[in-house]
Each structure stands twice: as structure tokens, then as C-alpha cells.
Design a protein around this nucleic acid. Structure first.
Lengths: 121, 121, 121, 121
DNA sequence: GTGGTCTAGACCACG
DNA sequence: GTGGTCTAGACCACG
């Protein structure tokens, strides 16, 4: 899986890494149990500080998306918690986006279609 | 309309203000043409600096949500642009949230129901 | 001549009045010697403070575009100075606009065509 | 590139900075990808507050002229949008300037010559 | 009274 | 070290 960093984005680099790995898991590009590159390898590959990659991995670990052990590096967790709900923070963000879609004159049907496409990715 | 600031949030205060006003417009709590509190009044009400409120208003103005004039302060714009689409940034955010919903085991139907509730607010 | 004020413009009202009268003279809609409405009449017509209209007239007078006398109110001056050049301030503004046209990829020919249209107004 | 602030100008300092950088890009004095001074460096150099410089940079960023990243500061963007047109606001300004040129007795040829000189800068 | 601008000084996350 | 955020306080033009 290839991680692409936009150094000019307002989104911090460690979050860009975290987000892309989460989306990789979601899309199936990263499968359960799959080995992730080491912190050192990934940081060299994308040309950034190891601390930044490390921070991304730590967040993914604390969120329950990956497991790390000293010997094997990081792996996608086999059984990710199926809370069947969004975090409070994600709900807030989603609420804001829904609001902006409404103001922009999108129909709920168009919105559902848009998320349908994203769902399929 | 009451604006509530979460001082522990990662979201900057000026953005919290901006977001809540956008959501107020979306929900109909703020109607087209409605007068917003003056920069000074709002800053005193929520106990923050006028510069911070002013920044929120300037962003809302640049986004076309409100209008300001020197005499009367700020008002919700009568005719907000109906682009019928989301900004690239909002799409990216939405894509990330959809991914996390999928991983958490939400069904698309549940997701649609959640956004339906938000749509109704 | 009808003066239209945009109360939400960043351009101060007195300047909007001043600019529209100058453009009226330029286009020929206001002819040399033509009587302008009194400060009181114009302020009532457009629903603003007399001080604001008065300020616009004072500027036009100081710039040599109009003449005022207590008996007859204001008139467009018969012989406006033909300096055949722009003020330093207008040159600065024009220089900035030219720069932005260049960056936006306009050709000099397109720019000339645009000013040609404006010239004809 | 040297930025000069006119403290007696009606143009706000942050706009003077913004305008000079835009003109620097237009003239080629600032090339695509070129590093701009840091907010701190520029504010010290011209003896004004960091907030004021920061505001100028944020406007340039929102207009798509520059990019900022946390590590390296600000750079001139490589691919600036080529809308091939002026903003409504710039058109209004240009229309006013054309009017004043006409009243001052400039010929269209002289006006074109003047903008030609500016174009070459 | 209104929004807009600016300062001096501070703290923060990111990298 | 970098840009981003925020404050307290001040002054200004506009109307």
C-alpha cells in the first residue's frame, strides 16, 4: 500500500498517515493480520521523520486498528471492535458536513448517493 | 441562538463559532436576513476576545454565508450560493468518516439513518 | 441619474456615491453644468445620512469634478482639468490589477479588449 | 525581494504585503516554488507584528498564490490557477479607473501604453 | 456603536 | 524553528 503525503495540507502528516491506513483497512487494501512496514521503512519511503510515523502507529494502536510487537513490527488487527457506531468526534464532524450539504442545496438522495460511492471504495 | 465553546476541543474557537453559525443557518434556527450579534456582544457573551469572533465572521463572510455592514453589524445572507456539492475538503473528511463507519461494522442503512437524523435537525 | 448603494460592500458609502458620479460624468450620463440633486434630496432618495452624501460632494468638489454654491446646490463642472494622466494612487491600483491579470493568464490583447469595453460605457 | 510598507497609506499593512508579493510573482521577481521569508523573519525585517504578516500569508494561501507547511514555511505555488479573468472586484476597480482616465482626457492609446509598461514590469 | 486593523506578548502542535 | 491561535488593549473610519 502506497501512502501519499501532502506536505501543504492543513492535516498534520501523522494524521494523514493514520487516515490513509484506516482507509486502506476499510477498502480491503490492507487485510486483517497484514504486516505493515516498519516505522523506519515507512519514514524513509515517504521521506519524513520517524517520530511522525511512530506517532501515527501509536494512534492506530490506541484506537485498536493495529497491533505492534517488538519482534514483528506492526500488523493490522484480526478482530477490530465492531462498535457499530461513530465516535462523538466523528459524529460532530459528520453533523457539520451534513449541514453544509443542506445549505449548498444538496438533496438527501444525492448525499446518500455520494456516500454510497465512498462506501464502495 | 446560543453559541457554546468547548475550550478543550482541538477545534480552534473561531472555527467552533463558524461551525455553529453554519449549523444554525442549516437548521433554520438562524433565518435568512437575520441579524447576528455584534462582534463585541458575542465576544462578551461567550467570554472570548473580539479578534477571535471577528475572525469567525470574516470567514463566514468570505464563504458567502453572512454579510456585514458598518452600520448594522452582520446578517445571514438572503441568497446563499447553491453549489449543490461539497468542497473537496469536506469530501475528503466525509470519505474518512465513511471508512471508519464501515470498519466499525455499521451498515450503509444505519449510516443513512444517522445522516437522516442529522438532516432533520 | 440613479445612484445605487450596496450597503454590504467593503467600499464605504461615500466612496460609492463619489465613484458613481464620476462614472456618470465619464459616460456622459451627467453632462457638464448639469445640476446634481441636493445633499438632502439625494440622502433621502437613497436612505442614508446627509453627512455621508455631503462627504461625497466635498470630495468631488476638492477633486475638481463639481462646483457648489449655496444658492444652486451642486453642478458638474464645465471644464474639468485635463491632466491626461492618472493619480499616483490610481496608477498603483492599476499596476496591481495588471499584475493579477498577468498571473491569471490573461493576454495583453484580452486585457485591452476588456478596457475597451469599459471605455465605451 | 524587498517589501516596503507605507505607514501613511490607507491600504492596510497586511494588504500592502499581499499586494507586493502578488506583484513580485507577476514580475518574476518571485519564481514558482521560491521560498518566502518566514512570518517571523519578515515581521522583524519590516518592523511589524507577526499577526499582520501572518494575515497576509493566509490571504495569499486562500487565494492560491502560496503554500505553507509547518516545516519549511511558505513557498510560491508552482501551478497558480489560470482563470484568465479578473475578479468582479478587480473589474469594478478597473472600470472606475478607466472612467477617471477618460475624464482626465487620456486617449485609449495612451491608456494602453501605460498598461503596456506595467505589463512589462 | 459598528466592524476593521494593529500591537506586544504568549502558548501551542507539528516536525 | 515553523506557522497557527489567542488575549488584552488600543485606535480608526464609517455612519
Amino acid at each position: 500500500m502506497i501512502i501519499k503525503i501532502n506536505e501543504y495540507s492543513d492535516v498534520p502528516i501523522y494524521l494523514q498517515i493514520r487516515n490513509q491506513i484506516v482507509m486502506g483497512i476499510s477498502s480491503g487494501e490492507l487485510t486483517a493480520g497484514e504486516q505493515l512496514p516498519t516505522v523506519r521503512a515507512l519514514s524513509m519511503e515517504i521521506g519524513i521523520n520517524t517520530m511522525t510515523v511512530s506517532k501515527a502507529y501509536q494512534i492506530l494502536k490506541s484506537e485498536g486498528y493495529i497491533l505492534t510487537d517488538r519482534k514483528n513490527g506492526a500488523r493490522v488487527r484480526m478482530e477490530i471492535d465492531q462498535s457499530k457506531s461513530l465516535s462523538a468526534q466523528n459524529k460532530d464532524e459528520l453533523r457539520r458536513i451534513v449541514s453544509e450539504a443542506k445549505i449548498a442545496g444538496m438533496s438527501k438522495a444525492d448525499f446518500d448517493k455520494l456516500t454510497e460511492e465512498m462506501w464502495g471504495e
